[in-house]
């Protein structure tokens, strides 16, 4: 009996360790949050949130491209974020440049089941697809 309890305890401990080691896929909200964090802090990492299958992926990798879309010197934030299927809509604020401009993300899942961004439109202008 004691031996059986020890075995069960060992299995439970192993399961606990394994649960901690399993990486859950990135959700839509997490992807958008990571994207905005990179927009504000590190343009060279913005591309990591994008779908490699999108048309402009290769062109949009450089940080210099995101310096154009999100010029440095502003603090960018989203409000009123809503998700319908694979489309995320929000209001983008960024000083006098984007005073609540409409921003639309189209999301897709990569092979790891992580959500990534396949297109971005700001004020009806497509900057990534």
């Amino acid at each position: 009996m004691k031996r059986a309890l020890l075995i069960i305890a060992a299995i439970a401990a192993l399961y606990l360790v394994m649960s901690c080691a399993i990486v859950k896929p990135v959700t839509i909200d997490e992807c958008i949050s990571n994207f905005m964090s990179d927009v504000n802090n590190d343009h060279s990492s913005v591309y990591k949130n994008l779908s490699t299958s999108s048309v402009k992926y290769a062109q949009a990798v450089p940080a210099a491209y995101w310096d154009i879309v999100f010029p440095p010197g502003y603090s960018y934030a989203l409000s009123g974020q809503s998700t319908a299927g694979s489309t995320v809509t929000a209001s983008l604020s960024g000083g006098s440049l984007y005073p609540g401009s409409n921003i639309v993300f189209t999301m897709t899942q990569n092979l790891d089941k992580d959500y990534v961004i396949s297109s971005i439109t700001i004020a009806s202008i497509s900057y990534f697809n």
């Binding site: 062109q59 210099a64 491209y65 154009i68 202008i125």
Partner: peptide, 24 residues
């Protein structure tokens, strides 16, 4: 903003795309 600033952002993005096309 709509008539001057946004078109300038869009023009920059287009030029950047074309530069990358030739480089690639």
């Amino acid at each position: 903003r709509a008539g001057t600033v946004f078109p300038l952002i869009q023009d920059q993005a287009t030029l950047f795309l074309n530069i990358r096309y030739y480089a690639l």
